[in-house]
Design a protein around this nucleic acid. Structure first.
Length: 200
DNA sequence: TTCCCGATTTACT
DNA sequence: GTAAATCGGGAAA
């Protein structure tokens, strides 16, 4: 298995990184359970110039400091007081870009994911959506600012990798970002069932 | 310290 | 389709 190199993450074209992450394998090893799957949906957050990004305008606080690290670490934060959202920090140190992982297609540890999601049967909603995905993989703030080469969370090249057909569209839940909400920074694998909102 | 609100999900009407 | 859940970050005072 080949984990992605630090060079991959330090590309400063964040939408390119977001697209290239589609089809890669994301794994976590939490509470002694290995879980993982194929990344099917991502969104790019383009640092200080992006109104939808937490670091817009150079905002640098306890929470957002993680995004200023060199690419290749996680940025996990709590949203709506309930859901943990997983991002992959990208770009060079000091440039707060990140890619939100919005959905995966489960491959490994499906029983564990079903149990964590309190589901009996596999269905797309198990990991289609950033909050759902984090719950299935056991991701919470404990996994913030972890290197993606760590033994708790990492991303690999897929052995059966095929270049996916990619759909680009607007991001979800960022209406407050005004005109930047129109940027085509959301990407997903066309036709995949494990995508949070195929139409939009 | 106060107040407002969110990169969502789920359960209802 | 609409609303509730739920808490910590960020801005203002």
């Amino acid at each position: 298995m080949t984990r992605l190199s630090s060079d991959f993450y330090q590309n400063e074209d964040v939408s390119s990184v977001a697209k290239q992450l589609l089809g890669k394998l994301l794994f976590t090893y939490v509470d002694g359970e290995l879980t993982g799957g194929v990344i099917t949906e991502t969104e790019a957050y383009d640092g200080v110039v992006d109104k939808a990004c937490h670091a817009f305008g150079g905002r640098n606080t306890n929470r957002t400091a993680t995004m200023y690290l060199a690419g290749g670490v996680t940025y996990v934060y709590l949203c709506y007081g309930i859901h943990h959202l997983l991002n992959v920090v990208s770009g060079k140190e000091g440039n707060p870009q990140a890619v939100l992982i919005r959905a995966i297609e489960p491959k490994v540890g499906i029983e564990t994911m079903l149990s964590r999601r309190k589901m009996e049967k596999l269905a797309p909603r198990i990991t289609a959506g950033p909050g759902a995905l984090s719950q299935a993989l056991g991701i919470d703030k404990q996994l913030n600012a972890k290197h993606l080469s760590a033994n708790e969370i990492w991303i690999e090249e897929d052995l059966d990798y095929k270049v996916p057909e990619i759909v680009s569209t607007t991001r979800i839940g960022v209406a407050y970002a005004q005109e930047h909400a129109l940027w085509p920074f959301r990407f997903y694998i066309k036709g995949n069932k494990f995508v949070s909102k195929p139409n939009s």
